[in-house]
């Protein structure tokens, strides 16, 4: 994907998210909620227990979604550790937040491997995998960029090792499955925004 298109897509997500956020705050009429439900972010993936899931599977919860891969040594574990810290800081409110880690490396990140990896952060985080096509479609739905490249090294089995460039954002999806906006995990407003949104859901 050309970089300008990526930026345009990102801007659309951010701007669109703001618009949806304002709409949700001002109008809670059934029509508005029905309209929002139609725009659920269209992904279909396999969760780390082997269950097929879509945005509707987490209806009634907010979703905080990150795309990464388990062999990412720095950015992914740092982001997931911060996501786990958010869950702890939210206390009981975290019961209405589903943190999701979508792998961009489904060839190596099987559901079982994802489950194992995420347990190190927080048992409430769910890993999503799927076919390469399903993962590519999910990334497109969120406006996520990822690209595989060879690292120039060999893995433990002597095969060429590869890694990914990938969007570093976390994506907030509302309780009807609608993509609201992207955050960087270090955003100072993220915890407060989540707390406000979760309290409004009570």
């Amino acid at each position: 994907m050309p970089r300008w298109l990526l930026i345009a897509a990102g801007a659309l997500v951010l701007f669109g998210g703001l618009a949806v956020g304002i709409t949700l705050r001002q109008a809670t009429a059934p029509e508005a909620r029905a309209a929002a439900a139609k725009a659920a972010v269209p992904y279909k993936l396999l969760d780390h227990n082997g269950r097929t899931v879509t945005a509707a599977s987490y209806r009634g919860k907010l979703q905080l979604v990150f795309f990464g891969f388990t062999r990412c040594p720095d950015v992914c574990p740092t982001t997931m550790a911060k996501a786990a810290a958010l869950l702890k800081d939210l206390g009981p409110l975290a019961g209405k937040l589903q943190v999701l880690f979508v792998t961009v490396d489904p060839k190596r990140d099987t559901p079982a491997a994802l489950k194992d990896y995420l347990l190190a952060f927080d048992e409430r985080i769910v890993g999503l995998s799927g076919s390469e096509e399903q993962v590519a479609a999910a990334a497109k739905a969120f406006g996520v960029y990822f690209e595989e490249h060879l690292t120039g090294f060999e893995d433990g089995e002597g095969a060429p090792d590869y890694a990914f460039d990938h969007s570093n954002a976390v994506y907030l999806v509302d309780d009807a499955g609608v993509l609201l906006r992207a955050y960087v995990i270090d955003d100072v407003n993220l915890l407060g925004d989540l707390r406000d949104a979760l309290e409004r859901m009570k």
């Binding site: 460039d165 990938h166 969007s167």
Partner: peptide, 18 residues
Amino acid sequence: AGMAHLHESVETNGVAQM
């Protein structure tokens, strides 16, 4: 470990790269 290399994580337009 079999290998260790100096690396840097950089962010360009919201994309993490090493």
